[in-house]
């Protein structure tokens, strides 16, 4: 474990807590893409199948359990408890356009052709594009609540910090995982224009609104 990975995990945890707080406080999931949350639940489910078969550390296990539980709880809130506030008209990105190509790629490009390894690879590739429905929704509505932009900033920062973690592990541990690094870079690049808007607008107290 290194400081970048710990900061990354904390940023990821913060993002999830911000989202839950937003929905709980405002009793609404307006502006949030349910499809992205479904994709995240799929990412955690397929990545953490080794939850009971390989024990890394207490930290690793508890974080995995929390990520899985919070992702399904978020879906419950969006599609059940606060269903009336779910904006399905603007959440119109076709998830199959992401899941199918990513599923095919996981079969073709992986470290080893084993079920758990292919599912892990699928989860890594899927996570890199899972935010697209959310970014698509923000571009369609043309704006996002400030709390939602904080959520996206924390979520985007987590994988950016993981990139620093991989650089660190390459030089200090000799560890390098090409699949995770490439997918992590793609994932972070997708946030670039949002990061720009967040830093130039939200941090100046303005609302996040995309140029029409």
């Amino acid at each position: 474990m290194n400081v970048f990975r710990l900061l990354g995990d904390m940023s990821h945890l913060l993002a999830i807590l911000i989202l839950l707080l937003k929905m709980w406080k405002t009793r609404s999931c307006a502006g949030i893409s349910g499809k992205t949350q479904i994709l995240f639940a799929l990412v955690f489910t397929t990545r953490y199948l080794d939850l009971f078969s390989s024990f890394i550390s207490i930290y690793n296990t508890t974080m995995k359990l929390f990520f899985i539980a919070s992702s399904y709880f978020t879906i419950f809130l969006m599609y059940s408890k606060f269903k009336a506030t779910y904006d399905s008209n603007h959440d119109s990105f076709r998830m199959e356009f992401l899941v199918v190509p990513v599923g095919g790629l996981a079969f073709l490009v992986n470290h080893e052709f084993l079920p758990l390894e292919i599912l892990w690879t699928f989860s890594i590739y899927l996570e890199s594009v899972a935010i697209l429905p959310q970014l698509f929704m923000v571009s369609k509505t043309g704006e996002a609540e400030t709390i939602t932009s904080h959520y996206l900033f924390a979520l985007g920062s987590y994988r950016l910090l993981y990139i620093f973690n991989w650089v660190y592990r390459y030089y200090f541990d000799g560890f390098f995982d090409l699949i995770a690094v490439v997918a992590g870079c793609v994932q972070t690049i997708l946030y670039c224009d949002f990061f720009y808007l967040y830093i130039t607008k939200v941090l100046k107290g303005k609302k996040l609104s995309l140029p029409a």
Partner: peptide, 10 residues
Amino acid sequence: TGKTFTHDEL
């Protein structure tokens, strides 16, 4: 890239 079966990252 060596064998990275035990993925120790979240």
